[in-house]
Computed example of a mutant assay.
Amino acid sequence: MKRKIPVYFWFPVLGCIVGGTFFMSFPPVADQFMTLFGVGYAGLSVLFSILYWSHSLCQMPGGLIVDRLGVARSLIVCLAVMIVTNLVPFIAPGSLSLAIAMRVVLGLVTGAYFLVMIKIIKILTPPVHVARMQGMHGAAFCLGTLVPYLYLPPAGAYGWAAAYLSGAILCVVVGLCMFRLPLERLRETRETDSFSQVLKTVKKIATSKDIWLMGICHGFFFGSINTFGNWLPSILADIRANSTPEDWAAATGVMLFIGTMGRVFGSEIMGLMTRWQLITRVMLLIGVFYWVLAFCANPVLFFCLCLVLALLCGLTFASVFTLLIEIALPAYVSSTMGFMSMLANLVNILLILLWGTAREYTGNFSYALCVSGTCALVVWLWARKRNPEKALAGKAPS
């Protein structure tokens, strides 16, 4: 008898792949958008990062909305708005203000959308498989960021249009697949706490040093992969003369794929060391790698080092999210995830803006890599002094 793939596996994976495509739908055809909107590298960094800004700012309120509104209703609203934001730009394709406005709205909605996927995993997945599913959830997002590098360059001069249209089509696919979920179980997840209780919970989450630290660390893990996903083609084009960012699109796709594989296998290595040991060791390596990359003048070596870095960053995903799920209050998993993700996205935004601005005004990315590496080492020193895993021994995060 043929064995069915459980819905708690394939639906969050599909949903996160689709969500991931939005975050890399512009970089593969960056030159087209630069020409379309008449902007340079600094302007392009704003266009790239604006989605992350709104995405990060919506994480905490998005978590509260999902916790109180329920998973099913939240998902329907998110999909509907995401379809609209990908179709409206066709009204005035050359309007930078319209494109930015739609990216802002898209970021706000994806902030809640990914929290819906996390909560679906928590509700439907047997406890023994939660760690593996969190790793798959992260891997699916990374795989989604890789997908635009496969289909946008072949679209030629219409790559910018394909970037928008594909997003709307993929949202329709997720919406149709949603009817395979056990919707009754998802509707039963609404919370009815009083407003004062919600405020107390928000205060507890927002003042937790452990959650702040985990958010910043995850910002460097997730942010390193995303920032290289945005800027690696430009960096390699700078290093190798007479090449363009489009020439390195496939190489960037490989890097994102390696990060995806890291997330897939991250849960499998959790038995070799504690989760916090893995997190702190990778933080140290990020700082070291950034400094090495800042002075690397060989494109092949630079690319190979990026592959290793992407793999290391991907390995941490399951550790970060399973640790946070166990620390979070059961009724406010989405809110806790949202706050941590907000911090991570802010770090990611700062990296994207720093690298693009440094390239615009210094002519290369070396200074940005040095600054990023120094910041990573400072965070590593902080991480060595704390261990949020101790909260699982009966202490609340402090």
Rank of each mutant, 00 (worst) to 15 (best):
A131Q: 14
R103E: 09
V147K: 06
F221D: 11
V130N: 09
A383Y: 07
K122T: 12
I121C: 13
R263V: 08
L311W: 03
N230S: 06
T374S: 13
K204G: 09
A161Y: 10
P127E: 14
G63T: 11
E326F: 07
P182F: 02
A376S: 15
L44Q: 00
G43Y: 08
L293T: 06
F90P: 13
G223H: 09
V7H: 01
T125V: 01
A376Q: 11
L284C: 09
L351R: 09
C304M: 14
V104M: 08
K200P: 00
W10N: 02
F228T: 00
R187I: 00
S366F: 06
G229Y: 02
R3A: 10
P397V: 03
G70K: 04
G373L: 05
V7Y: 02
E184R: 11
M342C: 14
V88S: 12
C171V: 06
F179C: 03
D67P: 00
G175T: 08
M337L: 12
R68Q: 08
F257Q: 04
L381Y: 07
A331L: 10
A42V: 05
L272N: 00
I5H: 05
G363W: 10
S234Y: 04
L307Q: 10
V347C: 12
L324K: 00
Y361R: 11
K385S: 12
L146N: 01
W160G: 05
W382L: 15
A393S: 13
P93F: 07
Y151F: 13
P126F: 07
G223A: 03
C177N: 14
E184T: 11
L47F: 12
M337P: 05
N364H: 11
I286V: 13
V18M: 01
S45Q: 00
I279V: 15
H137G: 12
F90V: 09
L311T: 03
A161I: 03
I352R: 04
